[in-house]
């Protein structure tokens, strides 16, 4: 009896989120049809998916541009964030000197720099991945710094009693201890990266997901604009879950 309930519950656990999504999109579909909302205001999910398949050849190159911006910027941003964090925490003075400003970096949206970046770099892809890198860097840095600072003193004492070299302590204790925090930062950084890419595209540029959305909205082809929104939704969720998945793989055993 109990076992049966368990299997039932297990099935429910899998189905429940799917039902929630069905209700959200189904409700949208029904409401748009029922209230006869004009096509240039919003498009039915079914129409959007249809357009997405029909025009995929045209949509994909733009999506690919955005993905490239995100990936290049993200890799630069997190590498910068992790190395800066390790640099600053390696020295007490440096840590004290920069830590008040790190918070400033966290609360100042880096996309505000996009207009300036345009003055310096023009309208190319460089502006976008610079914006993405600048946006994903602070959160990774602050998380890594927290991780490094919270390494238990007992672990250092163990290394000291073994007469470990500084390098050994760094690679065998400090890095593995800080890894969970590094991953938290990297996972959050994906959200900053995707937001920055789209933001930078909408502010400057003519290729990529953002500009396409504005273009098709302006020409009242909202279904195509929504197709791009769906693609962006897919990219963001996949990116976030991918990093979360790697995180779980590595930390699962602890």
């Amino acid at each position: 009896m109990v076992k049966q309930e368990n299997t039932l519950y297990r099935i429910a656990k899998v189905i429940a989120p799917i039902i929630v999504f069905l209700i959200v999109f189904g409700g949208l579909e029904w409401a748009i049809g029922h209230y006869d909302v004009p096509r240039w205001l919003i498009s039915k999910p079914s129409d959007t998916v249809q357009v997405l398949f029909d025009k995929f050849g045209e949509i994909w190159p733009n999506v690919w541009v955005t993905i490239k911006e995100i990936l290049i910027g993200y890799v630069i941003g997190i590498s910068l964030g992790i190395s800066m964090a390790l640099l600053f925490t390696s020295n007490r003075f440096a840590e004290k000197a920069v830590s008040p400003y790190v918070v400033f970096l966290i609360v100042t949206p880096q996309i505000i720099l996009v207009p300036l970046l345009m003055l310096w770099m023009g309208f190319g892809i460089e502006v976008k991945f610079t914006a993405v890198a600048l946006s994903s860097f602070p959160i990774t840095m602050i998380s890594t710094m927290t991780g490094v600072k919270n390494v238990s003193a007992h672990r250092y004492e163990l290394m000291k009693s073994l007469r470990a070299t500084k390098l050994q302590t760094f690679f065998k204790v400090l890095i593995p201890s800080a890894i969970p925090n590094v991953f938290t930062g990297m996972r959050l950084a994906t959200i900053f990266a995707t937001t920055a890419a789209v933001g930078a595209e909408l502010i400057s540029g003519n290729i990529g997901i953002g500009p396409q959305i504005s273009y098709y909205t302006e020409f009242m082809q909202v279904d195509i604009a929504f197709a791009y929104v769906y693609m962006m939704m897919l990219i963001s969720v996949l990116f976030y879950t991918l990093i979360g998945f790697i995180e779980n793989m590595i930390l699962k055993r602890r």
Binding site: A16, P17, V198, I213, T217, V222, M232
Partner: peptide, 27 residues
């Protein structure tokens, strides 16, 4: 069950860059 049901939807809402819908939203 509600936790299981809603977490994916909330995750989508958290990760989707809000800015992407702004052009449509302004209309």
């Amino acid at each position: 069950l509600a936790i299981k049901a809603f977490t994916p939807l909330i995750t989508v809402l958290v990760t989707l860059p809000v800015m992407v819908i702004i052009p449509i939203y302004m209309v």
